[in-house]
Write a protein that binds this DNA or RNA. Structure first.
Length: 548
RNA sequence: UGGGCUAUAGCCAAGAGGUUAAGGCAUCGGACUUUGACUCCGACAUCGAAGGUUCGAAUCCUUCUAGCCCAGCCA
């Protein structure tokens, strides 16, 4: 796969700003609200803000937008930091919106003193009524004309806890008839007595996003403030606050399309329900596209970077197929992982002409495309396991390049074996294959007198590690074509198989392997001394089905 | 039907009046192969529609059509 890194309109803007000397260096930020964990969709914003700052020699801040204490929790602060660090997007500065509460209050007071903000006593419901709707203009609040002095006193009172929650709000004085509803005297501060994870009980008023966000950006000297499309009609307000609050730096808000993945669940509320109902095994379930889920599944962070870069930063909103990420994952794992044998669904093979008390050790390269990964010892005896799907009693067609009765295949890194007889179990399933091997055909010997009917992998049954394989399929039924809801959940999205890997392999923590001919798998934290547990990260591509 | 956006192949996405309309994923051929993998070669679009401007339009104009977002004291 060739590399690609799409140019995008934001790069163009940045390059212009740099060449015009509008900015000497740029500053970006990722501003999550700590009310849930990050998923692949957020990765676009995280990676792009990070990459852009690095590519143009600027800075990248991580800033928690913690302006609503009733929804937020330190637990998410820690989780988000961990996930972003895992992605390798190291921040130059870590800030919290709450660091700026005092300055925000002062700037809001400035607005009051300039006659650009007022305290409104309308109830939440009345404010909604006065706001009008999409087609009808709003009406002015009866409190809009209070004197500046009164507003100063009232706003101070709000801050000092003189009023009940919800009793008053501070509003910007803009235009109740604006076709842009965001400009209809938006609320700047609300009264909310809630314990804040950072500021504790210092404040009983909290700023609203539309007011807080531009100030946060301006205070940090952010030059390019990227956000998603739904904030496009908030931009006039963003600019209004920067201007009227007399901020020194005027950041530019630029909107891009959110990254949506087809057939995946990303709503925080939905994920939480799946976690609570036990449909998935926590926020880090490998079937989820949360960053923690992807990590547990074994996705290399750089594959996510590759994916994000390939997608670019468009203004259109489509749904990207998961296949695309899969390909970037394989590409990253291909070189960096050891390639070993694992039999996921075993059938026993008895090699009748190999002495029962004999065992030999063969050597195999761990990755022929990356010899730095060294080699390993692989054992061979008269009892082996091969993959159930690698055997059919009679060759079904000329394309069949696996084992059948009377045919010879090469066991990779070992010998040719020929299947002679099968034994069935009570369910009429093949239980044991009796085969003979040919000592002339040892791998590496240069034997080429006969061509085998294919090459398959195996594990020495006398030296095999019991392993649980967790094979994941889409959590969402691919055939479900209406909007994703609970009906769409694929109940068989997690398939557990029990088999073996080579006995001489000792995986490292979270090591990713290529199990030859099958796919990439990563050691799961549920592994223990008796049984290894592997998550399938992604299967190898296969043209087998389409050729059959 | 108020305002703000979007529309290029099955899926993403470059493209800024003159290019054979990049590239990736997927698909389909073929070569190679001790992974039916990898790799390599090859195939695969007239740009939402209709008009217009121009010697020349995916790019400019007009009118349509379709989809998304906005009426939280959420972000």
């Amino acid at each position: 796969m060739k590399k690609m890194d799409n140019k995008n309109f934001i790069r163009r803007i940045i390059e212009e700003d740099l060449s015009n000397q509008k900015h000497e260096k740029i500053a970006t930020r990722f501003p999550p609200e700590p009310n849930g964990l990050m998923h692949l969709g957020h990765a676009r914003a995280i990676v792009m803000n990070y990459i852009l700052s690095k590519d143009y020699g600027g800075t990248f801040n991580l800033r928690f937008d913690d302006t609503n204490p009733i929804k937020e929790d330190v637990m998410y602060v820690e989780g988000i930091k961990r996930d972003i660090a895992w992605l390798g997007c190291y921040w130059d500065n870590l800030y919290y919106a709450s660091d700026y509460f005092q300055e925000m209050y002062e700037r809001a007071m400035l607005l009051v003193k300039k006659g650009l903000a007022y305290v409104c006593d309308l109830s939440a419901e009345e404010i909604k009524d006065y706001r009008g709707d999409l087609k009808t203009p709003g009406k002015n609040s009866p409190y809009k004309d209070r004197s500046i002095e009164e507003n100063i006193k009232l706003f101070k009172g709000m801050k000092n806890g003189l009023y009940q929650d919800g009793e008053k709000v501070l509003r910007a004085k803009i235009d109740m008839a604006s076709p842009n509803i965001n400009m209809r005297d938006p609320i700047i501060y609300r009264i909310q007595r809630a314990y804040h994870h950072n500021t504790k009980d210092a404040w009983c008023i909290y700023p609203m996003y539309d007011f807080a966000h531009p100030l946060e950006d301006a205070i940090e000297g952010i030059t390019h403030s990227l956000c998603s499309l739904e904030f496009e009609d908030h931009r006039p307000l963003y600019d209004w606050f920067v201007k009227h609050c007399e901020m020194e730096n005027a950041p530019r808000q630029i909107e891009f399309g959110k990254l949506k993945i087809a057939n995946e669940i990303s709503g925080k509320r939905f994920i939480r329900k799946l976690v609570d109902d036990g449909v998935v095994d926590g926020w880090d379930d490998p079937r989820l596209i949360t960053l923690s889920g992807l990590r547990r599944r074994g996705v290399p962070p750089l594959a996510i970077h590759d994916f994000i870069k390939a997608l670019g930063l468009p203004k259109s909103e489509g749904e990207t197929e998961m296949h695309m990420l899969d390909e970037f994952i394989r590409h990253r794992l291909k070189i960096e992982s050891r390639r070993i044998h694992a039999v996921i669904d075993p059938i026993k093979v008895i090699v009748t002409n190999y002495p029962d008390d004999q065992r030999e050790t063969l050597t195999a390269l761990n990755n022929k495309e990356n010899e730095a990964l060294g080699e390993r010892a692989l054992t061979f005896s008269n009892e082996l396991y091969i993959e159930r799907e690698d055997f059919l009693e009679t060759k079904p067609n000329k394309k069949w390049k696996r084992l059948s009765l009377g045919l010879e295949v090469r066991l990779m890194h070992a010998y040719f074996i020929k299947a002679n007889e099968v034994e069935y179990d009570e369910n009429n399933q093949v239980k044991t294959i009796y085969a003979t091997y040919d000592s002339e055909t040892k791998s590496g010997s240069g034997f080429n007198a006969r061509k085998p009917n294919g090459n398959i992998h195996f594990v020495d049954a006398k030296n095999a590690k019991p392993t649980e394989f967790r094979l994941y399929e889409s959590l969402v039924d691919p055939d479900y074509d209406s909007d994703i809801d609970e009906e769409a959940i694929n109940k068989n999205s997690k398939i557990i198989k029990r088999g073996f890997i080579e006995g001489n392999i000792t995986p490292e923590e979270r090591e990713s392997f290529q199990f030859t001919r099958q796919g990439y798998f990563t050691l799961d934290q549920d592994s223990n001394a008796q049984t290894l547990v592997f998550n399938r990260t992604v299967a190898l591509r296969s043209s087998f089905k389409s050729k059959r």
